[in-house]
């Protein structure tokens, strides 16, 4: 097998436990299941692995209507039916109507690819079970053409989940699992630095302080996450907001400037205003 090791990239900070999980999954050729708060870089991980190891990336985004079969192949019976009515000669070869899915594409790749199955919990509860054999044996059978499709190289499979549904045990047993913890302040500072290498120290410190303070606020419906912090800092830079503005104790400005990037619904904004209001009254 390959001795490829993933150690984070210039745009992605990987903690040691994450690196371990990724490398173990690569070495032992098991799918890697990634969970974590939204915005902690679950989907990005697969992209970064592909980039770091120089592998092609196949992304399969799951929706609530996605069926496991669609990842393998689809038999477009409807257009065949139409073609038969129109007398198209293509109709005699059923292979013309087999549409390859993402898994098939990944199986056919010349070098070991990275396959991302994004947000697996969005799909029906049976979805992971339907993929067990395919992920285990890395092969499947096309009944229409009586053809066995086998992976030329076992893809590195990264699966993300947002915890909306419990995944079946049989499926979990075959995966490695990693939960991306929300980064602590140190890691967060490193992440921001990766994205904005020339950020002024004081602005960074103030932005992080405001950010973690906001996350602490009890009862927020959607806590701002890493990706939101990155967006917010981008805005701060674009608007050239000075660090002092974040430190402001002006009672009329309870919300940080450009809070729209951090708080994503009006209940949270409202709640935050209330908390700040109480704070001011007591303090």
């Amino acid at each position: 097998m390959t001795s490829a090791r993933f150690e984070g990239t210039d745009t992605y900070v990987a903690t040691p436990d994450l690196m371990m999980a990724v490398n173990a999954a690569i070495t032992l050729a098991r799918p890697l299941l990634i969970k974590g708060e939204p915005g902690t870089g679950k989907t990005q991980l697969a992209q970064e692995i592909a980039r770091a190891l120089g592998r092609p990336l196949h992304e399969w985004h799951i929706k609530s209507t996605t069926k496991a079969q669609q990842g393998l192949y689809e038999y477009d019976a409807v257009s065949r039916l139409r073609d038969s009515q129109l007398g198209d000669p293509r109709v005699h070869d059923i292979a013309n109507y087999i549409v390859k899915g993402k898994l098939w594409e990944a199986f056919e790749s010349d070098i070991q690819p990275v396959l991302l199955i994004d947000e697996i919990d969005k799909a029906d509860i049976e979805f992971p079970n339907d993929l067990l054999r395919e992920l285990d044996r890395m092969e499947f059978y096309v009944y229409e053409t009586r053809q066995l499709v086998r992976a030329r190289h076992r893809p590195i499979i990264v699966i993300t989940s947002n915890n909306e549904k419990e995944l079946p045990d049989a499926f979990l047993r075959r995966c490695f699992f990693h939960y991306i913890r929300f980064p602590d302040e140190q890691t967060m500072a490193r992440i921001v630095e990766v994205h904005y290498p020339n950020l002024r120290k004081d602005l960074l410190a103030e932005a992080l302080r405001t950010f973690f303070q906001l996350r602490e606020a009890p009862g927020l419906r959607k806590k701002p996450s890493t990706s939101e912090l990155i967006d917010w800092i981008k805005l701060l830079l674009a608007e050239q907001i000075p660090a002092e503005a974040l430190r402001s104790n002006d009672p009329r400005k309870v919300l940080p400037p450009l809070y729209g990037a951090l708080l994503k619904n009006e209940q949270d904004v409202h709640l935050f205003e209330q908390i700040a209001f109480l704070h001011r009254r007591s303090g």
Partner: peptide
């Protein structure tokens, strides 16, 4: 942990 634990 990655091997044995499948849920946070």
């Amino acid at each position: 942990r990655a091997c044995l634990v499948k849920d946070e």
